[in-house]
Design a protein around this nucleic acid. Structure first.
Lengths: 209, 209
DNA sequence: TTATTTTAATCAATCGTTTGATTAACTTTG
DNA sequence: CAAAGTTAATCAAACGATTGATTAAAATAA
């Protein structure tokens, strides 16, 4: 059946996403990925052409869902700039737990600073999200909600940098925070509320007049 | 000469540090490192035992200089907590340019979350730095300089996360900031002042009463 | 000489990929 | 309907290339 074929492709992508994020691109061998997925090694090349093709598809699968989530927020006229920021932080806090290993994989690849098609594509994708945030911050300045001298690029770097620091170095962060952030329940009950609350307080103090 | 031998060892370490941080541990083959350093491949194993031994020595070379830099600050009685924070941010801003590729290599390895001796050693080292910062923040709360409800671990994560985000994704950050942070002159004249100034303003707004 | 440093050649292991054969399901033909 | 043909899916096996590591010989220094 066609359905089964799609499911199997998707299943391989699921497994590969996990293995890549655990081991990195180089560390995740095609033998390991195919082994974990319970399929023959040759299937990876059969379905995705190459290891890099497989890697690419993992990201492309997510792109569409990334695209329009933030655009609706940016164009919403019923909220002021700070309310949009709060909403942005809420969504961003949710993603930490939901796309944990995808986010890690994403920034791991970007951190390599390769100049291949894949890396450039990923950078463009992330910059699209950044542009939405940039729009909100500029709107806040224009409307007099935010201080005039705020450093927009640095605010963006802070927002994403703090999140990445925590989820990319879980063994460090767990000792820093005092609880195990590799535990899903801890992420849900402690990390998510903590990071949302902190970011709102931090940016409220910095942005608002 | 013994001198030359030490110099050559050190030179290999310099080159390896750069290559590792550019390509990652797996991506940096012994052939590439030895080629860049202009020495025979076998020299790496002769001097450092193995590839991992070489990797380890790169970090061990830096550890001693890391140790006591911050301790002097923490024990200084002539400054109040916020002045110490400012001083901390100054030193932290300087390190961005000075130990650029070492910092990158450091967090790249920690991000792997391996459970070998090396990774555990590195985590302990970083936590030592963190402890100093923790001390300053607690002192500020105790003395009534800082708000009582500040989130200390998250402040630390923000400080290091923002820095790492910028230096680990230079191609992203350059587009975000509007200038090329791979250019040393740009780092010196623009990035360093900007990140120092921003961090002081951000934390001043969040920490101070 | 003796001891140390450096080299080229080679090792087994692993990498991503390709191959040719086989299976199963669907389509076409008679 | 049944036989023949066609297709995609899957497999074990092997490919050439590259990996980190080792060797024994050559070069250098003491």
């Amino acid at each position: 059946m066609d359905k089964d074929k799609i499911d199997k492709r998707d299943y391989i992508l699921d497994v590969a996403e996990r293995v890549f994020s655990e081991k990195g691109f180089d560390g995740a061998s095609t033998r390991l990925i195919s082994g974990e997925a319970g399929v023959n090694m040759a299937m990876l090349n059969y379905y995705f052409g190459s290891k890099e093709g497989l890697f690419l598809e993992i990201f492309e699968r997510k792109i569409s869902s990334f695209q329009n989530i933030l655009q609706n927020l940016g164009n919403d006229e019923s909220m002021n700039a700070w309310e949009k920021m709060e909403q942005y932080i809420e969504m961003y806090g949710e993603k930490i737990v939901n796309n944990n290993c995808f986010q890690k994989l994403l920034y791991q690849e970007i951190g390599m600073n390769r100049n291949n098609d894949l890396s450039n594509k990923l950078r463009d994708l992330l910059l699209k999200n950044v542009t939405e945030l940039d729009k909100i911050l500029n709107e806040g300045i224009a409307k007099g909600e935010f201080k005039k001298d705020i450093d927009i690029p640095m605010v963006i770097a802070t927002l994403y940098g703090t999140k990445n620091y925590i989820i990319n170095t879980p063994l460090m962060s767990s000792r820093l925070l005092g609880y195990n952030i590799l535990n899903d329940k801890m992420i849900e009950t402690k990390l998510k509320p903590q990071i949302k609350s902190f970011m709102k307080n931090l940016l409220k103090a910095y942005l608002l007049n």
